[in-house]
Design a binder for these strands. Structure first.
Lengths: 355, 355
DNA sequence: CTGAAAGCGCTAACAG
DNA sequence: CTGTTAGCGCTTTCAG
């Protein structure tokens, strides 16, 4: 099987010339166009009226020189970087990838750039990133931070706009876009009850996340409202990951082999749980139904496809970006937005026949 | 089912105070510390020797004021933004998400920021992004661009470092990090042949991508070397997406229901193809084996788990970022790096028993 | 070891 | 409609 991998590493130099050509400046453009620097600036920004004659010559010069305004210089002078930062725990997580895409889509359409930062759940990295963003962006979007709110509070206090997304952050003066996590838990419970299960289990998210607690509360409350309760040994917490879900499902199976419904606080856990369940010989949904929360796109690809209470991650991101840009660009008040959630029913809770 | 979605939208204002506090400047720090601006600058950068006394006072002042150097001003003066741009077709695609994570990890460790841009395969957006990055970043990493190379060439010519990643770009003076796509195709073929299939099919990527063509060539060549060939009706191209794979698999099934091995030019297609195959009543791998290329993490989660020739997307990104930062930070020559690929065998090509 | 002064490339008054 | 003039906040000579 050793022929099954290519050789170590190939490398070759591509060009022989250093070509330390520096970008053209606005002054060069002005000189070539035979106008003043400010006319170039105005022509390019369309800020003040410039004669057709002049702007044509400017355009020509810009084109000939391949001129691009220097964002840094502009930012220094105009006191706006036209950039926002986005801090997520892990950009590979499909939920945050979707959020990031939403952020980026509206930022792009509004002419803002976005810095991406993945903390990988490392507090030191998070602190470092936040620090850096404070110096490079006009505002930052913080998703599910694990660190202490102090640093974020200091950012807000020193004039950097902050919008929290997904998970609340204890900071005054920050905006926020969240989903109705309690409702998500309730909806999941209601849907599960519809299938008349006898033995329900619950896989929660990390205890330190308020969103995880809210989902649990919603789920529990709805169950109790229906006169059902959850024995403690069928309720446990794990990471918001596929592995976390696998592990939790195995635990549940060990303490109650006859479980026939499992609620997961997020989709990744649900994917892992469903997999573990199948590997333990259970049919999903015939023997056990599984439901998650989040609404990641991979939910329709897994086997079976995953029923989920979607939080519309793309919209979470786009709404958050819109709010942040309003705050930073138009001086809008920070506010809090709670987005609705909705059930997306797929195979993992499908009634298989006459049950 | 209407109770299965939360109310429209909730919103409330979070703070009543505008608090237009502007960030502290280096001058304020200097004043508070009782030293000059340049001493503050030097103390902070550790560039020139500063007495312990002074730097202590500076540190204190920085802390008290919550001072953060303004990146834009620094960039304007020092002529380095310490930022790179990353342009990908779609940041939600797990392959590019992984690449992005690799890029970001090394950028972060080297003290560079990264701008993320998803073109969504829209040439206008790509052009817009590239343009913007030219003004905001010191260099840009371009993954699988669809647009014309002219713009990228102009960027290089005007002093913006460029590194292509994954897909080559016809530009002189750009660096590049690629994987050995031909080898990937060959390895896939060799592995498939190991299973002694009778009717092999091939799902290629978009014809306009050189990587797609190379994978096809590698696959074909290896087949021919083994004295096998592929009837044209069992070879077709589709998008590098799950849907593309689904569609292609359906086509193949229609023209040859007895196909028992399908090679896909990327993992997303393979996931889609496997799904379509199963939905058409075929067992994977018992009836048909499926193999992809890329090595996305979701390959181990799908049912069955996916055999793939991995290109190690994370490393592709980290290597590309390292090269770009060397070019832009240390004036390194642009060069071309070709990374090895390797077979990762999973269930989708597993021999089920004695076959 | 420190400070004064000169800009980075750009925008934004302000006069013409 | 246009040009001149001050800076943005920072780094970086250059003298002390």
């Amino acid at each position: 099987m050793e022929s099954m991998s290519t050789d170590r590493y190939i490398e070759r130099v591509t060009s022989r010339e250093a070509a330390v050509r520096r970008p053209a400046t606005i002054r060069e453009v002005a000189a070539l166009a035979g106008v003043s620097v400010s006319t170039v600036s105005n022509a390019l920004a369309g800020r003040r009226s410039v004669s057709g004659e002049s702007s044509a010559r400017v355009r020509a010069a810009v084109h000939r020189l391949g001129y691009r305004p220097d964002g840094a210089a502009r930012a220094a002078r105009a006191q706006t970087r036209q950039a926002i930062g986005l801090v997520v725990p892990d950009s590979r997580n499909p939920f945050f990838a979707e959020v990031a895409h939403g952020v980026e889509a509206v930022a792009q359409s509004l002419g803002w750039a976005v810095f991406l930062a993945s903390t990988d759940l490392d507090e030191a990295r998070e602190a470092d990133y936040l620090d850096r963003m404070a110096g490079a962006a006009d505002g930052v979007l913080v998703c599910s931070t694990s660190g202490s709110p102090d640093q974020v509070q200091r950012m807000v206090d020193s004039g950097i706009a902050v919008v929290a997304c997904d998970e609340r952050v204890a900071v005054t003066g920050a905006g926020g876009v969240f989903s109705d996590d309690t409702a998500a838990g309730r909806i999941a419970a209601r849907h599960i009850l519809t299938r008349a299960p006898r033995r329900i289990a619950m896989i929660c998210g990390p205890e330190h996340l308020a969103t995880a607690r809210a989902r649990r509360t919603g789920f529990r409350d709805e169950l109790q409202a229906a006169g059902r309760s959850l024995p403690p040994w069928r309720s446990l917490a794990s990471d918001y990951t596929i592995d976390g879900g696998r592990w939790a499902a195995d635990q549940i199976l060990a303490s109650d082999p006859r479980v026939d419904a499992v609620f997961c606080a997020n989709d990744l856990q649900a994917v892992g749980a469903a997999q573990a369940l199948r590997q333990a010989g259970r049919q999903v949904p015939a023997d056990v139904i599984v439901i998650g929360i989040d609404g990641i796109a991979w939910g329709e690809v897994t086997e079976p496809s995953l029923t989920s209470v979607t939080r519309d991650p793309h919209r979470l991101g786009s709404e958050a970006a819109r709010l942040l840009i309003q705050m930073v660009g138009e001086g809008a008040q920070p506010r809090e937005i709670v987005l609705p959630v909705a059930l997306v029913e797929r195979d993992s809770t499908r009634r298989s026949g006459g049950d």
